[in-house]
Amino acid sequence: MTEHADIQAPGLQLGEAPPRIPVTVEGAIGAAIMGVLALITFGNVVVRYFTNVSFAFTEEYSVALMVVMSFVGAAAAFGNDRHIRMTFFTERLPVKLARLVEQLVLAACLFIFGCIAWYGAWYTWDEYRFEVLSPGLGVPSWYYTVWMPLLSAVICLRILGRMIRVARA
């Protein structure tokens, strides 16, 4: 499990089990994307200083990778309850009530990411059937946007997983 101080530790303790599928999968994908982003950007600096060429065209990939990283990382953060939130009030509730509130909170998260998955799928479908090309490299745009509904579905699974674990706690 990731142990980093930058994201607030949840002050809210509900006594749930850790996720059965650890978030190491998302962690590894996120790390790989971050590494690639750093290498591409650094490569551009180095190549530009020592040669006359550059691969600025890769920025379309970099931006798309950054979006994918955001969804993957968000999934990991849902798995371990590390999104930034204010638990000042719910921490003061009796644990039983706090668990109930937490289910409501998770339902809200599930609803919005469910909508993003659903309407995102329509969005990708529209890009596919309207034959939209990416504005930079001219590749089919849905190659990039399809990750939004797919990874939102992964986020929904992570949220569902937590709902079950909180219910069992």
């Binding site: 006359n52 600025a56 065209f57 920025e59 090309l133 490299l137």
Partner: peptide
């Protein structure tokens, strides 16, 4: 702004195009 044609125009001119 948009369009792979501009990426190719500026590449042909030796510049680094960014969309």
């Amino acid at each position: 702004a948009a369009g792979a044609i501009f990426a190719e125009i500026f590449t042909a001119l030796g510049a680094n195009p960014v969309q």
